[in-house]
């Protein structure tokens, strides 16, 4: 049975997978459970694993474009999915799963930044990134990333979510909790700044 469920899951859309995750009840936490209880839990885990596999790559790239180095980005992907699981009961399929995912990703990153601000350790990747940001070395990939790193925290999330993650403006408004018009102007302002930096 479990295998059959797992085989079916790959064809399910995100929100249906998330509803299976939402239905998860820890079998070990329910005294007097029936032996069948472990099956829904296994299906929920399989659904969650499918969601992770679908979104871990795009999410990793989101954190990388937002300036995290590889280790940090992988940690943040894990942290975000743990939050998805922790908040599963609050998921409502009224908006896209990616909106839910990126809200939690944004929170995970904000918390990480807060913790990093408490830590005296320098972020070597950030230092390298800043060094690579010197104008004049046009054409390299580092240029684009370095220019992104120079965007403000106000503009960068909207630009990254649109250009790299492919979210619609409305989804970005949902994720960032800002009006649609603000999304439009932030993205345009961010793109203009990037052009100026890259055209220098």
């Amino acid at each position: 049975m479990y295998t059959a469920h797992v085989m079916d899951l790959g064809g399910l859309p995100d929100h249906e997978l998330m509803l299976l995750v939402k239905a998860y009840r820890d079998p070990s936490a329910a005294p007097g459970r029936s032996p069948d209880d472990s099956e829904p839990a296994a299906v929920a885990e399989a659904a969650f694993a499918e969601l992770i596999r679908r979104h871990q790559g795009p999410l990793l790239n989101y954190f990388r474009r937002m300036g995290a180095h590889m280790d940090e980005a992988e940690d943040l992907v894990q942290e975000t999915f743990l939050r998805v699981f922790g908040y599963r009961s609050r998921y409502e399929p009224v908006s896209k799963f990616t909106s839910f995912l990126y809200v939690l990703a944004r929170h995970a990153r904000a918390d990480a930044l807060r913790r990093a601000a408490r830590s005296p350790e320098p972020r070597t990747d950030a230092v390298e990134s800043a060094q690579g940001a010197s104008p004049g070395s046009r054409g390299s990939h580092l240029d684009v990333q370095a220019a992104l790193d120079r965007l403000s925290e106000t503009l960068r999330p909207a630009v990254v979510l649109s250009v790299f993650q492919g979210l619609s403006y409305q989804e970005i408004a949902d994720v960032l909790g800002i009006p649609l018009g603000t999304v439009k102007s932030r993205i345009h302002a961010g793109m203009k700044q990037l052009r100026e930096m890259l055209d220098d």
Binding site: I52, L60, V77, F85, H141, V144, Q145, V163, F164, L194
Partner: peptide, 21 residues
């Protein structure tokens, strides 16, 4: 901008996340 190569996690993270769950 989209020419920036996409990266992938260095390992499948699903196992570690499920273990933590």
């Amino acid at each position: 901008m989209r020419e920036l190569p996409a990266e992938a996690p260095r390992r499948d993270l699903a196992g570690a996340i499920l273990q933590a769950v």
